[in-house]
Design a protein around this nucleic acid. Structure first.
Lengths: 241, 241
DNA sequence: ATGAAGACATAGGACGTCCAACCTCTCGTT
DNA sequence: AACGAGAGGTTGGACGTCCTATGTCTTCAT
């Protein structure tokens, strides 16, 4: 379940993250120049530059033209945690350490709204997974996933599953998954979820319903999520022209 | 307001956006291969690849190894109704009739948070517009726009302005506006906005902060919005590959 | 007919090179 | 002492080249 392929670019990225961690670099500390690191690692400056650009986009470093490269936000996470889900990335971007916890999971008959979105026959079964996502051990997202049984995902233990659902789906279906379509609204926290998010009933939360489609517009997973909006913000980039 | 970081990469990006628009390409339509476009534009395949990668990150296209490059989300809003703003579309989609009302407008010194996002000098002036968006005469969105004065928008009467701000900006700056970057969170409705949205204080609302950029990543407008979440849902399409 | 092998087109990845733009520091002229 | 020119280091941008990985389509032997 390696989402990170072992390309040189990723090696370089990993090296830089290690470098910052091991030398205990703090915010605004300067990193070695592109050229020197590239020489040390035996890669071209292009490759290193690409790694730096990526790290900058991820908010780890800041590059300043004509001056040098500096630590922006020391890396909170090492590689493997990065594999869970897109939401881990969001949490990471905000500066927390993400983790998952499975509350329950079972095969159930699809509820009407789910069945509707997934275009299932009546009485069709779905794998139901109830999880929470934690940021620095604090619960911030409550997740319910519904995956049609007919897809036939193979997982040794759903209870212990911490992999990337999207990756697993893509691999099992052997087709690229194309998009998540999400609807977002604000909502008052209902009582039954309150205990999981450890927030008072009625607190404003982001409620998201998200559907993953194949290229053929077949819905393969439907998820309901509740975000603790005090900690997590959603980020959209939308093209307007 | 110098708007010309006219790098080749940006030229290529702009060209591809135009290409998709002018040929009216839709989702899943195939784009010419990297090599052929690069040859047509007289740039190296590297440069073109970089543009493609960027466009993919922005959700406009999808690249598939060994197959080709495809349109993910056409970069323009095909709108006739969309006279005023993307939000009119959202309201329309939900089944209401959108309209606007200007509450107040003036030139003010940019508040710190706004000045920060727009990268303005201290004490720089901005055009401040306070509006509400109505769905079937019912207020559903509260909007505050901040536009740098130096852009020099020409409007006969801001009070009566109901045009499309984005269009006006694009025309005045004579450059395509590229993307909106938005941050969304849930929030309890504060008292000062309560009267405009006609909702009780403390009601859960969607709070959105939205920035419009040029192709060169210059921020040209910053907006704060509050959505009545009982009526409006936001809709995101995010590429996950 | 069928299926395997191979040709071809496409994106993925990396390298080495060159020059531009930007910043800091030093050193010589005034 | 003040200032400006210039050297040297740093990131920014682009090019051309080479090879690899992945799909698709054709061709040919069975």
């Amino acid at each position: 379940m390696a989402i990170t392929t072992d390309t040189r670019l990723n090696q370089v990225k990993a090296h830089m993250l290690n470098y910052i961690s091991q030398n205990k670099l703090k915010r605004n500390d300067q990193l070695p120049s592109e050229a020197s690191i590239a020489k040390d690692l035996g890669v071209s400056r292009n490759t290193l530059r690409e790694a730096y650009v990526t790290l900058e986009n991820e908010g780890v470093i800041v590059r300043r033209h004509g001056i040098g490269t500096f630590v922006a936000q020391p890396p909170y996470i090492q590689d493997s945690l990065n594999e869970f889900s897109p939401f881990a990335q969001i949490i990471q971007d905000v500066g927390y350490t993400p983790s998952f916890k499975t509350l329950s999971t079972e095969i159930v008959e699809a509820p009407p709204d789910v069945s509707d979105v997934l275009k299932l026959k009546a009485n069709a079964k779905v794998r139901y997974i109830q999880r929470i996502v934690l940021a620095d051990q604090k619960p911030v997202i409550y997740v319910e996933d519904f995956i049609p049984s007919e897809i036939g995902l193979q997982v040794t233990s759903w209870e212990a599953f911490e992999g990337n659902l999207v990756e697993l789906l893509a691999k099992t279906l052997n087709t690229p998954l194309h998009q998540i379509q999400s609807y977002i609204r604000a909502q008052s926290l209902p009582a039954d979820i309150s205990e999981f998010l450890k927030l008072p009933v009625g607190a404003p939360i982001l409620s998201v319903r998200s559907t993953i489609y194949t290229l053929d517009n077949q819905a393969v997973t439907f998820s309901k999520l509740c975000f603790n909006s005090e900690i997590i913000e959603l980020n959209i980039v939308r093209m307007i022209r």
